[in-house]
Design a protein around this nucleic acid. Structure first.
Length: 279
DNA sequence: ATTATTGTTGGTAG
DNA sequence: TCTACCAACAATAA
């Protein structure tokens, strides 16, 4: 479920559940391709008895900081954290200690609470590291739009050579900006009135400023929606809408197509392809 | 039955 | 060496 807003929401949930400051009494995992070290034994032993000092986020990655080591977590496409006491997601689960469907890793805390990582498709990852250095997956991320902000000049410089790449593909590159996924890219480009196929290298300062603003807009909006409890079925302006559905801004029929292997929605009426000379 | 899905990665061809 | 493309990972929903 994860792009930046979902992962930030997840982080806030983990904090709300009291994970920061608690000691992990017991870890249970079947280890199936999610955790590193690969042997569940080593993974479990490395965490038992350790106190969580902080939980940070960069892009779609979470980092649990312990005194000596760090645990990096990526939710993949379908991973989430659940508090069995808040239950809910799974009607088959009756008691907090009952296994949850697709439960992959369970943290039992010293204070009696539990936090469970659930991930049907097992695309998520948990990397335990006691190395001094951060892992590459973390260091290679670009700036986080929420915690570090978006530096328009830096962004322009970063994509200046990408003549063949579209702006949408560039935004999805986690080393350009951390945390933008398909939905946020689609929504932001619509808001900024930029066509997803626009060549990244061709974007001028004004347009990039609009895109940066639009990214902040959609990220904050999505995060607010997540926190608001009563989630709408589709809170997005154009993501997930069918081809031909009216653009909420200009009523032109929306288009749907594949771009860089991801389904893309845009409005041919009000999202302009900027010309190479418009700079 | 078929197709698509909020993500990343590793292989391969160019 | 770099990049573009794409299958693979696995489960579900329409």
């Amino acid at each position: 479920m994860p792009e930046l807003p979902e992962v930030e929401h997840t982080r806030q949930n983990l904090v709300r559940w009291g994970l920061v400051g608690s000691r992990i009494a017991r870890v249970t995992t079947t280890g199936e391709r999610i955790v590193r070290p690969k042997t569940p034994r080593a993974f479990v032993r490395g965490l038992a008895g350790k106190r969580v000092r902080a939980i940070d986020r960069k892009g779609k990655w979470l980092r649990f900081a312990f005194t000596e080591q760090r645990l990096y977590v990526h939710l993949g496409m379908t991973g989430w954290f659940e508090n069995p006491r808040e239950g809910l997601k799974n009607p088959l689960q009756s008691a907090p200690e009952d296994p949850i469907r697709f439960e992959r890793v369970r943290f039992d805390l010293e204070n009696g609470e539990s936090v469970v990582f659930v991930d049907p498709r097992r695309w998520g990852r948990m990397i335990l590291s006691d190395d001094e250095d951060e892992i590459e997956e973390w260091t290679e991320l670009g700036p986080d739009p929420l915690t570090e902000g978006i530096d328009v000049d830096r962004l322009l410089k970063r994509v200046a050579k990408r003549k063949k790449q579209s702006i949408k593909e560039a935004l999805l590159d986690q080393s350009v900006l951390a945390g933008i996924g398909n939905i946020q890219a689609i929504e932001a480009l619509w808001k900024a009135r930029s066509h997803p196929r626009t060549s990244a290298a061709v974007i001028g300062k004004e347009e990039m400023r609009e895109i940066a603003k639009a990214l902040r807009w959609t990220i904050k909006r999505t995060l607010a929606e997540l926190k608001s409890e009563r989630a709408k079925s589709n809170p997005f302006k154009i993501y997930g809408k069918k081809s031909g559905a009216p653009c909420p801004r200009c009523a032109t029929g929306l288009e749907r197509f594949d771009l860089g292997g991801r389904t893309t929605t845009c409005c041919p009426g009000c999202q302009k392809l900027s010309l190479p000379s418009s700079r």
